[in-house]
Design a protein around this nucleic acid. Structure first.
Lengths: 153, 153
DNA sequence: CTAGATTTCTTAGTTGCTAAGATATTACAG
DNA sequence: CTGTAATATCTTAGCAACTAAGAAATCTAG
């Protein structure tokens, strides 16, 4: 069946939309179980992603599209759960640097782990070339969305 | 560089995570502009997706993982914006059927359109076979997430 | 016909957000 | 230097959307 193997761009966008909607609900569910908000998880993911690069409270506000006032609450909750720590910036004492606690990834994996295992099983069904196509698309789609968000400020 | 063209499964999951996080922030931004909540958009997308198949208020609560009380608010807002209409179910008068208004897609496209154009441009960079891989993954990842959500109730 | 189950809506209370402004610090023009 | 403006975070008051619990209407089964 050639037709089914060659979806149109609108087909792809439709399938993507349904996937995104489900992932959003999934994140809300994860957040609920952590006793955190979706914004908290988005910020935490960004801190982990940044790795050694220092992240300020303001960076999180920009990235999550919320006010700095909201970030105060985000950091209080993440700090309360032991996910991150506030650290003063020696170079600029107005700033607050946010660093992930050593056990943070471990803690997150307790809840995310089972879901990631399912995803890993799914990805295992694809060839290395197909995995490259998927990873490339994730990266570029993320860039497209980020650019779109920045432009429409 | 072979290594770069063959990401590992963890690479793929990492790229996917960052993409999802950005899409979540994007949906929050769209919701803000519509004067709606993310839950409203998730429900609206589900109503559109269902097409002619009737959707009840309870279906939306199940799909969006919120209480039926929250759905009352969702429907009031979506109805207020002219996106959907409540329709009594002739077969069961307790039920409320939700149908998309004819102009609903058009209205949604006013805001979503520019973003979808960017996505369409991105998808245009992929061959039909690659597009098939992507669409297949969207569908299956959506199924994995939906199954995971249903199991963990 | 009645008792229980189902479906939506209502109400009270909680949470996380924004907007505006307070506070502390840094940057820079003169 | 010094004073003024800009910047970064936090605080506060108010608002919007959620939950939990239960009311009201309707359906289902014995």
């Amino acid at each position: 069946m050639e037709a089914e193997r060659h979806p149109t761009v609108p087909d792809a966008i439709g399938a993507m939309d349904r996937m995104i909607a489900t992932m959003i609900v999934g994140q809300q569910e994860f957040a609920r179980r952590f006793g955190l908000s979706v914004t908290d998880l988005v910020c935490f993911a960004y801190v982990l992603e940044a790795g050694d690069t220092p992240v300020t409270a303001g960076d999180l506000a920009t990235r999550a599209h919320v006010t700095t006032g909201a970030i105060t609450g985000v950091l209080n909750r993440l700090e309360g759960r032991g996910f991150v720590a506030r650290k003063p910036d020696p170079a600029d004492r107005r700033r607050v640097l946010v660093v992930a606690r050593p056990t943070a990834v471990e803690q997150a994996m307790t809840l995310y782990g089972p879901f990631y295992e399912r995803l890993a099983e799914l990805f295992a069904d694809y060839t290395p070339d197909e995995l490259a196509v998927l990873t490339d698309w994730f990266t570029r789609a993320g860039d497209v969305a980020r650019t779109f968000l920045e432009e429409s400020r």
